[in-house]
Design a protein around this nucleic acid. Structure first.
Lengths: 155, 155
DNA sequence: CTCGCTGCAAAGCTTTTGCACCTGT
DNA sequence: ACAGGTGCAAAAGCTTTGCAGCGAG
């Protein structure tokens, strides 16, 4: 099930790489598959996943390769990233656009319907000529579970 | 004009510090003033500003103090921070709530009316029990000026 | 056969932490 | 005087970069 996104993405990857005269490598295919499988993954998490998949054979791509590849995949339009908090960019496959809702309390990430921001997007476009990029948006707040816990902190 | 926010914030600062048995120091007052003056400031920018204000006298707070103070001020509810991109948390005074609109192209930050997300906030609350924190939200996209430039990149 | 890609390792940054000294109360 | 705060410097993450060898086309 880890590669249920694999086949769907393999074709576009090869295609877009060829179109630019770039090469299709095992590492690139694996990184893309990992991003798709882990819905909200940090570079670190992706690396871990790859290392895990590779097993003791140790054939996992190097960290620097993961970073370089993520950057490339993003340029190819196959993945997107969002900054949810501190130093943690999160990558996800560009297949199904969705926005991220992040709880400040527990750090849980939920995907939400992009339509949620349709109204806001229209107003930004009308008022400022600003084109909202829904895929990159992260909405912060507090989830239901943490609302109870909140406020317990001081006094 | 740099300290037009100073007086407004000085009182709450002293007050909240005393309420917790903490001390009012010059550094804390300066950091708060700098955050208020620079509307969207990174810790680095705040440090630079303080160093600049201090002049050759060199009486600027240390970087570590800036970080510690920002954390404290946030705990006191006097400032808020948002993550707009890479490793760049942006702090702003908690006086006037507003959300941030950031252009991916030029990095320009615009403030927008929190009401923009009122509808989205209500739906998140209703559907997920999620309380949206408008002050922390950053909306990414492309500004009018950069829309022209965009797309020029590939083919 | 060529040039792009990868792995390794070191450099770069921003942010955090430990400690001794200084300062607000 | 007492505790909290600050500065300094070292440590810690996370990401980027240089280079030589490997591999796709």
């Amino acid at each position: 099930m880890a590669d249920r996104h694999g086949p769907e993405l393999a074709a576009p990857l090869a295609e877009r790489l060829r179109a630019r005269g770039l090469r299709l490598t095992t590492q690139r295919q694996r990184v893309l598959a990992a991003v798709a499988a882990l819905e909200h993954a940090t570079p670190e998490a992706i690396g871990a996943r790859l290392r895990e998949e590779a097993g003791p054979d140790g054939a996992a791509p190097d960290t620097s390769t993961v970073y370089r590849t993520l950057e490339l995949l993003e340029r190819l339009g196959l993945v997107w990233h969002t900054h949810l908090g501190k130093g943690a960019p999160v990558y996800h496959a560009a297949e199904h656009p969705h926005l991220h809702v992040v709880c400040q309390g527990c750090g849980e990430i939920t995907s939400a319907d992009p339509a949620l921001l349709a109204a806001a997007a229209e107003r930004l476009a009308a008022d400022l000529g600003f084109q909202l990029d829904v895929g990159h948006v992260a909405l912060s707040g507090t989830c239901r579970a943490c609302r109870g816990r909140a406020g317990t902190e001081h006094s």
